[in-house]
């Protein structure tokens, strides 16, 4: 017994990350929850107290619509990202090692781009004056260049651009670990490549796929710049409104209350996803 504990990592080592988490995450979170109940001082900032006014404002049709918009946008971005990244990763793992490395390094490099750069690049790409509309005119597809931004399409392109590298990086290890004899066995047993994808790869990777969905969902839920750059005001998400309230309207309690609601909504969505994804396992 004693020799075992000698080799094991000493438990007190965990205290450091625990302390860091407490100071940098739990304390600010506590403050935020506290602020959400604070009383707003008109023309000024806020006074400590227990005031439900901010929450009352959250439960209005307007904020409700914004929540629905946010969740729908992020869910759509997550679905598109996973739907694109999964076949891509399957294809990637079938390439040579050198090609795989080049592509993965490129995707890692994309991660270093900030939301601002991505937003304005896509905005330029889809603009009337400098965008792909001119290319389509040159190709003779359309008569005159037009702007494709701001629009729902532009916003989704941006969110997917943001989420795609993460999706690939999350899906790559489990896909690469799949025994290549499994799809080969399916092939010998009569399955076409498409059926192998749906009957072997997809069900075997259900958990990592759900993980990737949740990651992109939560990640894009926090995007506050892309909706303003690429979307119309109707596409402004809760994160945009939180930023707006906190920075431009100086209404910290309302911003904090919306943030708390955003957190609860995210948790609820993750719970629902896990419940749906783990259903088969639970029923057995």
């Amino acid at each position: 017994m004693s020799s075992n504990s000698l080799h094991a990592t000493p438990g007190w080592l965990a205290l450091l990350p625990a302390a860091v988490l407490a100071v940098l995450f739990l304390v600010p979170f506590g403050i935020m929850v506290g602020v959400s109940f604070a009383h707003r001082a008109p023309g000024g900032f806020f006074e400590p107290g227990f005031d439900l006014t901010s929450y009352a404002r959250v439960f209005t049709p307007f904020v409700g619509r914004v929540i629905v918009t946010s969740v729908t946008l992020s869910a759509a971005a997550a679905t598109i990202c996973v739907a694109l990244a999964f076949p891509f990763v399957v294809f990637l793992t079938q390439l040579g090692r050198a090609a795989q490395t080049v592509i993965l390094v490129f995707l890692l490099a994309v991660l270093s781009l900030s939301e601002v750069i991505i937003g304005f690049s896509i905005s330029t790409l889809l603009s009337q004056t400098a965008g792909i509309g001119n290319l389509l005119v040159w190709l003779g597809v359309i008569d005159a260049p037009q702007a494709y931004t701001p629009s729902l399409f532009a916003l989704l392109v941006g969110l997917c651009y943001l989420g795609f590298p993460y999706t690939v990086l999350v899906l790559y290890p489990p896909v690469a670990r799949i025994d290549p004899e499994l799809p080969e066995a399916a092939r010998v047993m009569g399955a076409s490549p498409v059926r192998i994808f749906f009957t072997v790869l997809l069900p075997m990777l259900r958990k990592p796929l759900i993980g990737a969905l949740i990651l992109v969902f939560v990640f894009t839920l926090g995007a506050f710049l892309l909706p303003q750059v690429l979307g119309r005001p109707v596409h402004w998400t809760l994160s945009v409104h939180i930023t707006d309230q906190a920075i431009f309207q100086s209404n910290m309690p309302f911003a904090a209350a919306m943030a708390v609601i955003l957190l609860l909504v995210s948790l609820a969505m993750i719970g629902v996803t896990l419940l749906l994804g783990g259903r088969e396992r639970g029923a057995r």
Partner: peptide, 11 residues
């Protein structure tokens, strides 16, 4: 065909 790893589907 029976493969060396057997290639049975775990799911």
């Amino acid at each position: 065909m029976v493969f060396q790893s057997l290639a049975l589907f775990p799911h």
